[in-house]
Nucleic acid binder design. Structure first.
Lengths: 198, 198
DNA sequence: TGTACATCAGTGAACGCGCGTTCACTGATGTAC
DNA sequence: TGTACATCAGTGAACGCGCGTTCACTGATGTAC
């Protein structure tokens, strides 16, 4: 057993951190343009980085994707928590679901599909944690709309989020129809109380 | 101008017709397994046919897909027309939407995506005709549920079909959850009158 | 503050792979008589 | 029914391409003193 020596791990090199950031940005754009057909070599090239560097940071296309989604989900959940004090629970929920949909709308179905599919255990707990966080946040918002049904909120919110993500995916398939996402969200959430001003 | 001579075109050779049929069947399976990453060479090989033969029949992956979908849509519409005499209009509509969803559930999102996206004009009128046929059939079924709203039935059915296809896509992403499609369909159609026996 | 150095991030040519696509050729078969 | 033949479907080796991935090497930088 040759354990690594104890003590703090060495801090991440500044160039490494910058490259990681740049890779994530370029990957975001590449996924937005080509979805799951995006080329890793081109992402590396676009970030001004050797392909080996990309592999050092993200051994897998999936891991790149999960890193991007993790950032987004964090923002989404923090916005959701803020909405918990919104005066209109119904409006808060609708607003947040719209944000979720818009988020899922950014990468040719890749994001939507990750949010729906069972997390790949090889990807560690990162993606599963995203799911958990989204569900918890949504559950709180939903419970405020209909306090009596709190017990069922957890399963309801999962299906609701799935359908919202599916609607987002559909609207990506039809980019020429700018209003489609709005109309689909109305349909998808028609079983919820409407927000007051609509 | 060297026009081809007049008269009937030569009938399709029997081996050609068989090969075409075999290619469609193998392609169906390949798309079901690999979606848009299916390999044309492997489809040709699986059908026991040279790759050139595949290209003679279907110059494009897309054209292969459209041929498959055309067959399915025909069946779907004929079933829809039969349902127009069903004693319960609401049940007829729900049944048919379920069939549409199940159909969209067979090829890793490829079918669902084709049913939603704007038809590629290079693909001729075939796919556009599918959309038209589905919409017409659905529109009739919807009009029977709510005769007063016939004028708006056409736009409503388009969005409804889109959401149903989206739900089908989502349920493909989560194959481990066998009941997901059912639950999503309930959510997606919650703005319609419920069928009597549910 | 300055310096020596071990660590590890970065490099990018090279590899093997499977893909879509072509095309000169072979051979099956529908048609006309 | 039988036959000659023009048509066109079928073939599959070959091509170029871009992909993901590797790895021996270089060099930047965080750390310890």
């Amino acid at each position: 057993m040759t354990d690594s020596p104890p003590g703090r791990p060495r801090q991440m090199r500044t160039d490494a951190r910058k490259n990681r950031e740049r890779l994530l940005n370029v990957a975001r754009a590449a996924f937005a343009e080509h979805g799951s057909h995006a080329s890793l070599n081109k992402i590396a090239q676009g970030a001004g980085v050797g392909s080996g560097t990309l592999y050092r940071h993200f051994p897998t296309l999936q891991s790149l994707l999960v890193a991007i989604i993790t950032d987004d989900v964090e923002a989404l959940c923090s916005k959701g928590r803020a909405l918990l004090t919104h005066p209109s629970p119904a409006e808060a929920l609708h607003d947040w679901l719209r944000d979720v949909a818009v988020h899922a709308t950014t990468m040719r179905g890749l994001v939507a599909s990750q949010m729906i599919a069972e997390p790949d255990p090889r990807e560690g707990a990162a993606l599963a944690a995203c799911h958990e966080a989204i569900r918890t946040t949504g559950s709180s918002l939903l419970a405020r709309v209909n306090p009596s049904g709190a017990a069922t909120a957890d399963t309801r919110i999962t299906d609701l989020l799935t359908l919202v993500n599916a609607a987002a995916w559909a609207s990506e398939q039809a980019p020429y129809d700018k209003e489609l996402l709005n109309r689909l969200l109305v349909l998808a959430t028609s079983s919820l109380p409407s927000p007051p001003n609509q």
